[in-house]
Amino acid sequence: MAATEVNTSPEELRRARRWLWAMIAVGVLAFALGLRAAPPVVFIRAEQEEQASKAAQNPKEEKTPPPEEQESGEAERPTMLPWLYLLKR
């Protein structure tokens, strides 16, 4: 593959590199904050599966209503941190 011909000075490239790393840091921070504030869909789904399997094992037990559709984002999410959840499982 041929590299694209670019018109950039070394200073511009340095600035771009700094901006790139700053934005990656912002993205990672947003990811961490997102996880902390609203544990993500995967864990809700895992909990749902867990509840469903429990319910299947013990059909007499009252079923827990499933959370609202995830895409609305209004569903109640577990407050547990993901790594803690994984450890517990």
């Binding site: 670019v6 771009a16 901006w19 790139l20």
Partner: peptide, 11 residues
């Protein structure tokens, strides 16, 4: 951001 990524990753 779009430009910085484009510029750095092209190198």
């Amino acid at each position: 951001t779009i430009n910085a990524f484009g510029l750095v990753l092209e190198q």
